[in-house]
Amino acid sequence: MKQEKDFWFDVGPLNAIPPRGARTVKTPRREIAIFRTASDEVFALENRCPHKGGPLADGIVHGRKVACPLHNWIINLEDGEATGADKGCARSFPVKLENGRIYLDMSVAAAL
């Protein structure tokens, strides 16, 4: 039987992502953007803006938000919700940081 912790996949070291930057993780079902804030917090969202599918990993990260590179929607990194007058939500995924490495919960990230 698998233990719960086995679903945390090590996707790489924190320092592989620049502060205030993002990189993607390709999974069979979807591409996930992993964001690193200026103070080394990590967040994971599906790499698709709820507006027109823009790659959020390419946006400018500020605070706990990212500006979509296509039409500048501002997406909250914590829950994927669009901010301001815009309505929509990018799916967010459990991610954690341990001893300088980033772990993504594949039981969620690989599910439907």
Partner: peptide, 13 residues
């Protein structure tokens, strides 16, 4: 190079 490569690519299990 980090701009052009994914952090990780996970193959189907």
């Amino acid at each position: 190079l980090h701009e052009f490569t994914p952090l990780a690519a996970l193959a189907p299990i």
